[in-house]
């Protein structure tokens, strides 16, 4: 009997160590593999890339520039999912924020004020989600499906008059600074928006490892009952995280809006799927409790490299299919790893 249980214990150890290793490092291998495949592929025929070279400076800058919105979202979304919750309205929050940002700018509000007001608006939208989930106890998926529709509806209302996006209103024009944030190189050829995304990610990595918010999120997602009995106000944690995701979605909306030089009420469409994909690829458990901000950030880089790379490798109409396949692969590997963990 003793022999038997010793044996089980040691074999379980090895299994756990393997799965720990996989979970911690596989994401970097995936990134390297994706970049390697894209680099050796024959890319001659593509206009977007410098001739025949994926690992070209301009190409990389291009990818990172358009990645900014997703990179902004990845960290906050990870923390929310670590706490066991989800926000399907991020895309609509992003769209609405983009429209608000453009409206403010076009009406002559200075850059910094536009920026801060939009982020505050995003937090407000996040608070609406938090209210529905925490106070009204609506299932997170349903609550944020409701706001997905609501926020998008408001964004469309704000851009009436038969135009598809805000570029100008009557005599009013977009101010000259409008797309500096998303396009103007400030450091290493990359615009402010990208560096803000890096800064946000660093801040959230710090928050996850070195502040109570990160610890409380993990406890809430790991075991909500035990968390409450340990004196953690899980409602407040969840509410706060929804506001955080709202703010991140607003930042993403600002980046997208500035990059495209307009306020597009559909600019965030499908962003919720990308965010979930990125977080899953980063190895965050769908059931909560586990997940790392940094790994989701890398996951976002992988997805953007794939998306942009695919523009050049496969016909456009295959892309959604490939993204779906990637999501399936991520979910399956996630499941396999956590099963290995739970075994024996």
């Amino acid at each position: 009997m003793t022999d038997l249980s010793n044996h089980t214990r040691s074999s379980r150890h090895l299994g756990a160590r393997v799965s720990d290793f996989l979970r911690n490092y596989y994401i970097y291998f995936v990134l390297v593999a994706v970049v390697a495949v894209l680099s050796v592929a024959n890319l001659d025929q593509f206009a977007l890339f410098e001739r025949g070279n994926f690992l070209n400076k301009r190409n990389i800058i291009n990818i990172l520039r358009v990645s900014a919105p997703l990179l902004m979202l990845a960290g906050a979304f990870t923390l929310l999912m670590v706490s066991g919750y989800i926000d399907l309205s991020v895309g609509s929050t992003m769209s609405l924020s983009a429209v608000i940002y453009a409206l403010l700018a076009i009406n002559g509000v200075p850059f910094l004020a536009c920026f801060v007001l939009t982020v505050i608006a995003g937090m407000g939208l996040g608070a609406v989600n938090g209210f529905l989930v925490v106070r009204l106890k609506i299932t997170p998926v349903i609550a944020t499906l409701i706001t997905l529709s609501l926020f998008k509806g408001i964004a469309l209302l704000l851009v009436q008059d038969g135009v598809s996006a805000i570029k100008s209103i009557g005599e009013l024009r977009m101010p000259g600074w409008f797309n500096d944030y998303g396009r103007d190189a400030v450091l290493l050829g990359l615009p402010m928006a990208f560096w803000v995304a890096v800064g946000v990610t660093l801040a959230l990595i710090f928050a996850q490892n070195r502040t109570l918010l990160g610890k409380y999120a993990a406890a809430t997602g790991g075991n909500p009952v035990a968390a409450r009995l340990s004196g953690i106000n899980t409602n407040r944690v969840v509410f706060g995280l929804y506001m955080l995701v709202g703010a991140a979605a607003a930042l993403a909306g600002i980046a997208r809006s500035s990059f495209m030089s307009l306020g597009d009420p559909l600019s965030g469409d499908g962003m919720e799927l990308s965010a979930i994909l990125v977080v899953l690829i980063g190895g965050t458990a769908f059931s909560g409790g586990e997940g790392r901000v940094l790994r989701s950030f890398v996951g976002a880089l992988i997805i953007m490299a794939l998306t942009v790379g695919m523009l050049t490798l496969v016909p456009a109409y295959y892309q959604t299919l490939v993204i779906g396949a990637a999501l399936l692969a991520a979910a399956a590997s996630n499941h396999l790893i956590s099963r290995k963990e739970g075994m024996a």
Binding site: T211, K215, N223, A226
Partner: peptide, 28 residues
């Protein structure tokens, strides 16, 4: 189901009821 965070380590479980004690100026 009520006392432990089984997916977390011993270290993280021990501290979870009084994390405030481990923070200095909001930093863990």
């Amino acid at each position: 189901t009520q006392g432990l965070f089984t997916a977390l380590t011993i270290r993280e479980n021990v501290s979870v009821m009084n994390l405030g004690k481990l923070s200095k100026g909001g930093v863990f």
